[in-house]
Amino acid sequence: MKPLTWGIGLLVLAALAIMPFFVTSYIVSFTIQTFMWVALAGSWNLISGFTGYVSFGHVAFFGTGAYTGALLISKAGWPWLPAGLAGSVTAAALALLIGYPCLRLKGPYFAIAMLGLNEVVRALISYFEDFTGGGSGISLPPILSIEPVYYAMGLSAVSVTLLTYVIITSQFGLRLLSIREDEIAAEAMGINTARLKLYAFLLSAVFPGIVGGFYAWYASHIEPLGTFPLLTTITMIIMCLFGGKGTVWGPVLGAVLLSVFQELVWARFLFVHQALFGALIVAVVLLLPKGILGVLQERYRLPRAI
């Protein structure tokens, strides 16, 4: 990146860092949600945008992290920050357990397996009622100030974006892209595709676990139905797709634009907003499958690592 880009980036970060002191708490909580979506969309991008393996159950990692965080806070009495970070461990463990067998599945079968994974994790959490509170979920003490969560979520979003940049400019990233373009050819050229896919999958599960843990603390209450909706996975995907999958800034752009759009427009159409979201998905897939950055990249020869 050029010095100018770095400069602008640092300026934006500085502005975001001091923002909570100047704006209403409504804006702060809106930004927390946007940070969360940036981290989630960026994480989905790491596996699906780079390798082409469609993780259709990525919310499972978010939910696992949320339950890990909530259980550590409520049962073990951990402070929220380490509890949230611990969400990454369980999410990565789940990714390892599932990724090892399932990443051998090709195309639609991987997507189906991931879709099922989400249902299964939810079913298990509902089943072990004594431990997880079953359908009624876990309640945590209400949080007193949201600023710490703001910084924690913000750092997660920044970390995911930085990680994406590091990967896309590395040999590891190039190898992942080669899997997306032609897995058999990549294998034939000596790339250990099974291992690299697993690494990418693990990395893509870490941050959803962390922001899930933070989210549990922030929301003060989690329950299975609201923590594992397929809609959350789809929202990550559509944000990433809208901005441009396989890019650094695509998920950020998509997450910010769609969050703002959601806040400004959909809140006014409460009854039709789900139907509108369905229509938006169809529109993005049919009209803008490469995303905003993808189109710009093609038209203006932008660098690959944008």
Binding site: L231, I237, I238, G278
Partner: peptide, 9 residues
């Protein structure tokens, strides 16, 4: 997948 999901909601 996304297209039919969009239709499905």
């Amino acid at each position: 997948l996304l297209l039919t999901f969009g239709i499905s909601i």
